[in-house]
């Protein structure tokens, strides 16, 4: 049962990710990205990582996507205004991506996976167990990440604030 669910979710996530890249309208890109994120959250549930699935939905679909949509609406970019690259550049981009995939798959093909260690503990993904590991072994990175958040918040506010002394440049000199 969970096998079929895995393949279905994998198909959905790859298809939606392709649509994110190819959609003309940025709003459609954001909506397909939300589909991708929900498919990945489903993968986490299949992997018995319930806490990660919930955090993933809250952080990505709840916060980051709202931020993206907000900026797109604020900048009035919700129309197909993007100039397209030349076909040569598009072809080179697709070729480079496919070559990267080829190299990675070839490296995977040559390597041998060590088998899963016996029958691993099924409930390491629950909140209690993850919390114990996080606050026993990874306390310092956890606290440092709060500093990172603080600096990101200050940086975002500083960047977003309008400076009255600087006149906006209307023409870009190319």
């Amino acid at each position: 049962m969970s096998e079929y669910l895995f393949y279905f979710l994998a198909f959905v996530s790859i298809f939606a990710a392709l649509l994110v890249v190819t959609a003309k309208n940025p709003i459609h890109s954001v909506l397909f990205l939300i589909v991708t994120f929900f498919a990945i959250a489903g993968q986490y549930i299949i992997l018995n990582a319930q806490f990660l699935a919930i955090v993933h939905i809250i952080v990505y679909a709840g916060a980051i996507m709202v931020l993206f949509l907000f900026v797109l609406m604020l900048l009035n970019l919700n129309k197909e205004s993007e100039p397209v690259k030349s076909y040569l550049m598009k072809g080179i981009g697709v070729l480079a991506g496919c070559l990267l995939a080829l190299v990675m798959v070839a490296a995977l093909h040559k390597s041998t996976m060590s088998p899963a260690l016996g029958n691993p503990n099924e409930d390491i993904g629950l909140v209690g167990n993850l919390g114990k590991v996080l606050f026993k072994e990874y306390v310092v990175p956890f606290e440092v990440s709060s500093l990172l958040f603080l600096s990101a918040m200050i940086g975002a506010v500083m960047l977003g604030k309008r400076d009255p002394k600087i006149e906006p440049v209307n023409e870009i000199t190319n």
Partner: peptide, 30 residues
């Protein structure tokens, strides 16, 4: 993390999410 029964992988995912959130906030402000 699930296949090897080690919770450290999921903690790393947690930290990557933290970095991604900070990155998106600063990037969108830029």
């Amino acid at each position: 993390s699930t296949y090897h029964g080690d919770a450290a992988g999921q903690i790393f995912v947690f930290f990557i999410m933290v970095v991604a959130a900070a990155e998106v906030a600063v990037g969108l402000a830029l």
